[in-house]
Amino acid sequence: MEHRNANESSLVTVVINGETRQAMTEPRTLLAYFIRENLGMTGTHVGCDTTSCGACTVLMDGVPVKSCTVLAVQADHHALMTVEGLESIGGLHPLQQAFWDNHGLQCGFCTPGMLMTSTALLRDHPEPTETEVRHAISGNLCRCTGYVNIVKAIVNASQKMASEPAEV
């Protein structure tokens, strides 16, 4: 049985973007801060404290979750993927490219969360309709774009991924 004391740091091990990383942290550390501060990966953002905005979305065991509402210790020995893991040596992920091509971002703060949510969406539903996309990203707030071009980018990426399955 795993037991960690209040105010004491203990080891948390995660496989993040395919790489095993470890750091010492307190039980109360939220996963978002563990990723940002303990692991030094600042692509994952924090925009609220009520699990509303989704700027902190990461994939945990392949599932998009709000990492501000998961404890780092809960992620111990789990697989994580953050926006840092999207790009491969071959270049931008089709979603990254589509966000760029379609002006799917303005200030860029919500973008990593949007990318992670839509990565999971296209994996599970390769050909979503616009309505499905809108529902899928409804846990991610954006204040700049009015969502129009984000939706367009995700649909556009799905089409590209369908026509170039080798890249998926």
Partner: peptide, 8 residues
């Protein structure tokens, strides 16, 4: 951040 707690 939450107040400190123990985790089991």
């Amino acid at each position: 951040f939450p107040s400190a707690f123990s985790y089991v």
